[in-house]
Nucleic acid binder design. Structure first.
Lengths: 156, 156
DNA sequence: TTAAATGCAAACGCTTTGCAATTGA
DNA sequence: TCAATTGCAAAGCGTTTGCATTTAA
């Protein structure tokens, strides 16, 4: 899997990326390659800090600010999606993996993906009743996962 | 309306509050009174900064840290509810007003309350399909409100 | 009297920014 | 070549904390 929705390996991936960058007069750099690789490797979501940690291992002098700047570029180019789950948790996703939501466990922190379709009913309701166009690409639902909800007092 | 779900005015309000505080060996202070007043005055939600701004007007030397500390106490006592909407927006609510959700407009920032019942179907689905106990007391849904969604390109 | 609460200043964690040096096209 | 990109250090933001002082009970 790669950021452009193809199944090809490295070289093509890079070419495609160069293309996209070129369109905007932007450049490919080793840092960007590694950041993109980290996002692709992540299964659906990853935070800036995790990306940084991964990249630093192989490229010890990257700076966290480069990670943030690259993330901004990728988002602007539509290659990654950003989700603010609240509680200081911001996650990035390969765009080609489609939109999805997150069930975040308060207990163990685990994030489970939830297909977009699961919320289509809600989206319709909000539009009809409130005239509110919900952007359900960016949503986190907090609670307790299957593993943790046995040990926790449940209300609400 | 007051934090304890009664319709009485100031004096009783204070008495009741003293009681609650007393139970835990805590004290009533002018700062706490004003902070509580600000939350009650807010119609359903208010941020720490807004509380601070309001209180400073009448009590110029309060400190923002006192606001946060009081908010913690109130939350612990079950008098206010805290919701992290993401994007650095944390809102506090008088607890007696019941649980509700928030439709947050990306364009104008407006927050619309949404009744808890509106999401009960979703909650059921998540429990059945994912064994996930969703805490829908704390949720923000981002998108575009009725006023703004006319001027904005809509996808998803 | 005395523990709780406050103001202040400093630190926090995450993110952003200014700038001079570096580097890809 | 030369603008885009980087690393670095500093700042920004909302929030938290340590501590000496004040204050409610």
């Amino acid at each position: 899997m790669n950021l452009f929705g193809r199944k090809s390996k490295q070289p093509d991936n890079q070419n495609r990326m160069n293309e996209e960058l070129g369109k905007k007069g932007l450049r490919m750099t080793p840092q960007r390659l590694m950041i993109i690789a980290a996002i692709e490797k992540s299964d659906n979501h990853i935070g800036a800090d995790e990306i940084y940690t991964q990249v630093v291992e192989k490229y010890p002098n990257v700076n966290i600010s480069t990670v943030y700047r690259t993330l901004d570029v990728l988002e602007e180019m539509g290659m990654v999606t950003k989700t603010d789950l609240g509680g200081g948790r911001v996650q990035y996703h390969p765009a080609e993996k489609g939109h999805h939501h997150h069930l975040v466990c308060r207990e163990c922190g685990k994030i489970t993906d939830l297909d977009e379709a699961a919320l289509s009913v809600l989206k319709e309701t909000l539009l009809r009743h409130y005239n509110f166009v919900a952007d359900l690409r960016h949503m986190g639902i907090w609670g307790y996962c299957a593993k943790c909800n046995r040990q926790v007092v449940k209300e609400a």
